[in-house]
Amino acid sequence: MNSVVLTAQNLTIGYVHSRTNKTVIAQGLNLELHTQEFVCLVGPNGVGKSTLLRTLTSLQPKLSGNLLLKGKPLEKYTSKALAKLVSVVLTSPVQVGNMKVRNLVGLGRFPFTGLFDSRRPEDDSAVQAALEMAGAEGLAERFVHELSDGERQRVMIARALAQEPLLLVLDEPTAFLDLPGRVATMQLMRELAHTHGKAVLASTHDLDQAMHLADKMWLMGKDGAILQGAPEDLVLSGAFGTTFAQPHLQFDLKTGSFEAEIKPEQRVVLQAEGLADIWTARALRRAGFEVLVDGPSDLPRVEVVQKSARTTWKLLRNGVALEFDSIYALLLGLSA
């Protein structure tokens, strides 16, 4: 069922400049990728995530160590045999004009066709299957340059799937997308692993999404070391907070998300219920207030009144009562 696709043993990655001069980015990496598993590679900018992905897909040579694909060293594969097992979606957006989506996805059949690239029926059906798997079948007859960023990313994933790979490697596939596009792309990658049995490895900066959807996370730190585990493991062990540690940025261990640190300067008492309570409290905190449920009567007091679908915010300060019809107006009133 769940079998090992790629193994890295004591792997060193980096760049070779000349015979004597090379830059090591990370060393001693021991990694494994399995079928039916969606792994997210996360880490701050510039730690070498792309270098790792390029090395694992043989776009760039390793410096030392072993890389085994299905138990056989990566360098023993011919480039065509490798292309039938591993395919990639790269981070830079492709710009290609006058090309229909179906033709672009068809490029993925490159390792399967002969010298003159003539297509057999199984090539066409593989392209169709890839389009369907990526949820891009409705785009097939459109031109690539007319697509939105999210649609284009779907198409690039479909192209990678047309190679019928066992391992799919994506370098920041959500980088240029809006929020719904990012969620959809992450869900698609998870589905490719779980429903279609691929091993999927993606680097991403979308910690929230990765934490919700990844089966496993590779957390790459500034020293190049990689911590592995379920996202929750990395949160509990505190690895998350330390890797991304920065002044004025706090990792909230309860919600698993990062929050900008705002030092409260004043205090306010808030009386409200339900969603209005949550969001009003949030706004007050952002405005630099420590929010209390109860407190001495000399503190300003905010009361949320909900009457027949209309919400108003009452502010009681120094014996003066004011009423506002939005949080924005309330914050303006508080700062006055």
Binding site: L59, S79, A83, L90, V96, M99, L107, G108, R159
Partner: peptide, 13 residues
């Protein structure tokens, strides 16, 4: 058409 990296990843020398 998609750039050298994609071409290489598809098995082109």
């Amino acid at each position: 058409l998609l750039g050298e990296d994609y071409a290489r990843s598809m098995g082109l020398n």
